[in-house]
Amino acid sequence: MSEQLIQQLVNGLLIGFLYSLIAIGLTMIWGVMNIINFAHGDFLMLSMFISFWLYTLYGLDPIFSIPICTGLLFLLGLLIYKYLVSKVMTGPALAQLVVTFGVSIFIANAAVLLWTPDFKMIEKPLLTGTWSFGTIQLSIPKAVASAGSVLVSLALFLFLRKSKTGKAILATEMNRNSALLMGVNTDRVNALSFAIGSALVGIAGAFLSMYYYIYPGVGGTFGLISFCIVALGGFGSIEGAFIAGILIGIVQTLGGYFFDPAYKYAIVFALYLVTVWIRPQGLLGW
């Protein structure tokens, strides 16, 4: 295996871990409420801008913005659930699909209005540079972001398995009515899941702002990819989203390497279509 190929694999893994974190946030919402949050990518963009402005206005490094981004996105998720999503929960399926499209269009265009469509970047983050292992280069911010993503995913996994609230969320995901009968306050579980899902994408946004361009359209691509990851991993499956995220990251970089970088996302979407053809329920769905 050539060293270039190993380098591509490393790059794929690095972006893959971050994809996993973004997708886990989405799959929680999807699994618990059977709702796709089409504004998920725009939440990511908002978090990146929060991080950007904290840096630009107050000189706060993105690594320290993580708790603030997480908290603010948690609140945003709570509000969107309470005032919008909870209203469509009993409505027709189409309304449930479309409502978050409205949120997405609104946020993306509000960002254009407020901050112009231009690309921004955090000029001098604390974490910068690369580690070299022979000929393999490892970007430090990307490595930290990936390690952080894995840790957060792990923490969430433990929270869902070990804590009482986490178990209530999992129970609701498995069977809403049974959970309700067992005394789970499913409305609170909904609100919490939506908020946690948003907070997770908030963390991912803070990580991403360390090394990625920040602009209102950034949510579009990341959002679409995370839908594919979630569906690929299987309906509401946290483990599935984690694995599918890494898989998509690797496929995307290798696809760009072997074919044409311009088509890397097309390859990802094609892989998704092929997978659901063979396994409509996704890799780990049931």
Partner: peptide, 23 residues
């Protein structure tokens, strides 16, 4: 001026329709 205000209104409209007049 391409500011996107029209699209913002559009987004609000979508939210209102799906929440209050989904049929």
């Amino acid at each position: 001026k391409g500011t996107g205000v029209d699209m913002m209104l559009y987004g609000v409209l979508i939210m209102l329709i799906s929440a209050y007049q989904p049929k």
